[in-house]
Design a protein around this nucleic acid. Structure first.
Lengths: 235, 235
DNA sequence: CGACAAGTTGATGTTACTCAAAAGTGGTGG
DNA sequence: CCACCACTTTTGAGTAACATCAACTTGTCG
């Protein structure tokens, strides 16, 4: 059977995400499904990719991970947070040494990303749009770290997570999984975990969010978005 | 005449840069040279690309530019600094709406980036390596903003500029052009221009750098690099 | 020479860091 | 089932880095 399909809600996150970014043929979806049968699992805190290693094209299908930069004195910066459905490295891009190590923030499962049938295929387009989206997120991350204060950084990051979770069919319009520690959040936001904790308490006290059982619920997403002039990453 | 050439010091920066990143045939170099004959110039402070516009593949051949994010209240963050030889957008990548506006920091000249003859050609490889290098710089920028203090940020950025200038055949091992204002530097580093000014004075007082006539000279590049554990972006 | 942009200086305020310790949470094995 | 351990979250008090505001100087270009 050949033809075009709409993304299905019960599909795994990477299939929802890729088929939202470009229309995939059912052959391509089958390709992704069969790739899902040979998954690799990695325990929390373990490296998925070490710095300088050649990355095999991969997709994160469950758990969260992060590209990180460690400094000699113990400081650590999370460069990019990866959630289910995210590409670890596209089959199209250069097989270059990874510019940064990638570690699992939770237990993680990975599959290898199937090569696209052709550069004009839907899958190839989906991969390219993933990369563009990713770059948009990196730019947003830079603006966040450079010019927002703690509460604004946290708000901005949570809104980004919400959008990305929704893109992969995870969580709803105001709630989404967030299975990482406050310390990981601090390393993402360029803050200390103490300060992240205090900032979270402010937002909770103001009735803006709840965070329990590894999931966040934004109580007034529109007000949050308006308060920082949040706009979704365009793709 | 066909064959492989070494980069020539007197070549324009984009040719030096691309032919350092991958070996180009003389046909490909001719392609780049003829692209150089139809240059576009943009005055300082003008936009090269506005946010959301579709970017035409381009190369910066002279002057400096920056991708920026402007906030409603006047805050501004420079997301990426572009210097001569840098790709504005690769012919290979998606023709997606630009995630951020790009403005000229000095008067600028642009050429359009010629499409690579084939995906396996040297030029296509050079473009891909440009993108990988660029991503490495973005990661470095994030770590800088998230975890370094003012003096470290400045040092790290100047060392990156030195490396990138050298890659494009501009400047030497310790000195390079820096034709931008302290305010642009502040918007890059997530600091105020007042604080950048004071931090520069510290470095000057310690005999670490000179900055005059739009060019910086690092007096002890090795000591600077060691002080922050600087490692060049790997490509 | 005048005007405007860029760089410099000083005084003061605030955000976020540091250090330290207590309280809560979850998993493991006896 | 409980005791223990490691990890995470929370709280408090003092501090440092950077921002803010405002003025003044220098440089540049028409």
């Amino acid at each position: 059977m050949t033809g075009l399909l709409q993304p299905v809600a019960n599909d795994p996150p990477h299939i929802v995400r890729l088929s939202t970014l470009a229309t995939l043929s059912s052959d391509e979806i089958d390709l992704l499904r069969s790739a899902g049968r040979t998954a690799r699992t990695v325990a929390a805190r373990r490296e998925l990719i070490s710095e300088g290693a050649i990355e095999a094209p991969g997709i994160l299908v469950s758990g969260w991970a992060a590209r990180i930069r460690d400094f000699r004195d113990g400081r650590r910066q999370i460069l990019q947070v990866l959630m289910p459905g995210d590409l670890l490295s596209s089959p199209d891009s250069v097989q270059a040494p990874s510019p940064a190590a990638c570690v699992a923030l939770t237990p993680v499962t990975l599959i290898s990303a199937p090569a696209a049938p052709s550069p004009e295929s839907g899958l190839a387009r989906a991969y390219r749009r993933c990369l563009a989206y990713e770059q948009g997120c990196l730019f947003r991350h830079i603006a966040r770290l450079g010019r927002l204060d703690a509460a604004e950084r946290l708000t901005d990051l949570l809104l980004e997570f919400r959008d990305r979770a929704e893109l992969a069919g995870l969580g709803g319009r105001a709630d989404f999984p967030l299975p990482i520690t406050q310390e990981a959040l601090a390393d993402t936001l360029g803050l200390t975990s103490v300060h992240v904790n205090r900032t979270l308490q402010l937002l909770r006290r103001d009735g803006l969010l709840k965070w329990a059982g590894g999931a966040v619920q934004l109580l007034e997403p529109a007000r949050l978005a308006a308060s920082i002039g949040y706009r979704a990453v365009t793709i």
